[in-house]
Write a protein that binds this DNA or RNA. Structure first.
Lengths: 352, 352
DNA sequence: ATTTAGCACTCCTTGCATGAGAGTGCTAAA
DNA sequence: TTTAGCACTCTCATGCAAGGAGTGCTAAAT
């Protein structure tokens, strides 16, 4: 039995309703809520004193707390969690918003522009920070390899990937190669690898490398060796992301402490910590939410992160996220993240 | 006669010395300096009362001001300016520091890595923000153009520039072209443009476009048209820069106002305003310094910017800058900026 | 003509006390 | 089980006084 169901059982309907009202009110106001106020807003015919009793229970369960003796209650991480898991009423998306998102995610844009747009949309629509990882490259399909001779024993290798993408590598060779030699080498490699994804292509080349040394002619050997150089030192496995709207976070009172802000911004810049978090939800099905300390990263202690993977052909290609104060409008943010993930995936899908 | 010489004349040696001591002390302390303290520090056998008289003069000239009646004096923008222009004693660079910079700016790094490293060095060595513009591309030398056929009436154009750099463009054509047709087109364009810089190459192609319509065969016409497409929508003229260490600026009291910080960070992100400023010093000879409001940008009102162009073959390729509070150690920052500019230029020079 | 000592004055900072406001917990009654 | 009542706690804004820092001015000294 999940801890949330546990809680669900030990709380009667009234207590749950009150928690819901409290969380919603606190999210929109930012003010701790007192019993008198909650009594009015709850639409229950109940006196403040009764509310106080309920609040004492909720506090005992760790769902709410008060900043100080006479300050009303605010939700704890655990309180937000229960709210998000069991009592969220998601706002339907307006058609205006859907239009705006799809207009900014046309499939004729480059991958980078799409990722950038998605990040800007997330940030713009939520007034918080938007994060989008670049699509992973390891499943990209290698269409074609070409070589161009440069001076000084260098060769330019061109990988055409996924119709639209092009990658270059300059590799150093043991001697000069003529145009037609390179043409042959390219043909050979294309026969070997074209149509495979990059990981498989790399594997094939490594396999070939093993038994090519004795069996094959000199040109083929150089071809395979060049192929190997193409993939070594490649950035296939280095993921990265784009952040937009960091500065939006400076507007929120609960983050306006300059030290907290600094460590948050530093975390964005160093990427390591944050990628760690995003990795964790690349395996999750849909939307995933980290509230406050749940993320396990100190810099994000006062933040919540709403993430969703985005997929192309049912394969997860990356993750997008909105980062903001724990006191954010989850009802608004969740559908926005969901929609953006879906449309970003579609746009990338139509690339190929 | 420059306004500074004006000032120099109306100030006797003693007043200048006192201003210098005051500025240096304020830069290292951040505390407004009172007459008693200044009397001690100045090494002049002079009483606080006398100092007060001198201060009154300096205040009248707009070189110092006091935050409030009983708070000592701090330098104004004009005061910093006089200090920087006429009484700076630059610290010599330690060999350690020179080693560290040159180790991080090896010429075997790519252009982007060099720019990034330079920015990190500036930021790291000064504990402020480092900014480095990417080298301009318009003087890049076009070595070679190649075409590769893709599917769906698309052609991949490859520009090899400056030995190490490669740029790709995908262009859409009116029909499919064979490999050998493209080869011929490339040969033709290479004959026309190879060895020129990008701006000249573009011009040549535009000229050719004019009288090619009637005179030439179909293939040549397509070649020129493709050439034209390569350069249209190019990013030759779009300059850009890399910022490192923005968050360092959060440590400084005088910038710790969250609204100021936000507009500063926004200015970094939007780039427009900031590029404007950097442009202004691309024509200046060496180090240039903007103190406080001198920059003319509200977001930078409480900042100083120390800039220097960097050159390759005596031609200015870009600008680097350190951004920090007006109360920065100019003596330390100036030689760091100078050195980094020099070594960045050298590293880029050895590319070709 | 400068320089200096003395003194009144201003302004910031800190600490302390005060009172109002908000909200709680507890008890006893409904 | 719910509610009214009440004492209690904590925050926040305000006012006030004392201490500190530093100035400007004046009058005397060099």
């Amino acid at each position: 039995m999940s801890p949330n169901q546990d809680l669900n059982n030990s709380l009667n309907d009234r207590a749950q309703h009150l928690l819901k009202v409290l969380v919603e009110s606190y999210i929109s106001d930012g003010q701790p809520m007192g019993s008198r106020n909650l009594a009015k807003m709850s639409d229950l015919e109940i006196s403040p004193a009764t509310i106080r009793n309920v609040m004492a229970d909720l506090e005992e369960l760790g769902l709410v707390e008060s900043p100080h003796t006479s300050a009303g209650r605010v939700p704890t991480t655990k309180g937000y969690r229960l709210f998000v898991d069991t009592m969220l009423t998601v706002e339907p998306l307006t058609t205006d918003l859907v239009k705006r998102v799809s207009k900014n995610l046309q499939s004729d844009l480059s991958t980078n522009s799409l990722v950038e747009s998605a990040s800007m949309l997330l940030s713009g629509l939520t007034s918080m920070a938007g994060v989008v990882t670049l699509p992973r490259h390891d499943r990209d399909e290698l269409r074609q390899i070409e070589f161009l001779p440069l001076s000084d024993q260098r060769v330019l290798a061109i990988l055409i990937v996924n119709q639209k993408e092009v990658q270059n590598r300059i590799i150093h060779t043991d001697r000069e190669y003529s145009h037609s030699e390179l043409q042959q080498a390219a043909n050979y490699l294309n026969e070997l690898c074209a149509g495979q994804d990059l990981v498989v292509a790399r594997q094939k080349i490594l396999q070939e490398l093993d038994h090519v040394r004795e069996n094959m002619n000199e040109l083929m050997r150089s071809a395979v060796e060049m192929g190997e150089k193409i993939f070594s030192g490649t950035d296939i496995d280095k993921p990265d992301y784009v952040v937009v709207g960091q500065t939006n976070l400076m507007e929120y009172e609960e983050l306006s402490d300059i030290y907290k802000l600094r460590s948050l911004f530093d975390a964005f810049n160093q990427k390591r910590e944050f990628l760690n978090l995003l990795d964790r939800c690349i395996c999750a099905e849909g939307i995933q939410i980290f509230i406050g300390q749940e993320s396990g990263h100190k810099a994000l202690d006062d933040c919540s992160v709403v993430t969703s993977p985005y997929t192309v052909d049912d394969e997860i290609m990356g993750v997008l996220a909105v980062v903001g104060p724990t006191r954010m409008s989850y009802e608004r943010v969740i559908p926005i993240v969901d929609l953006t993930a879906k449309l970003l995936g579609e746009a990338l899908n139509n690339h190929s």
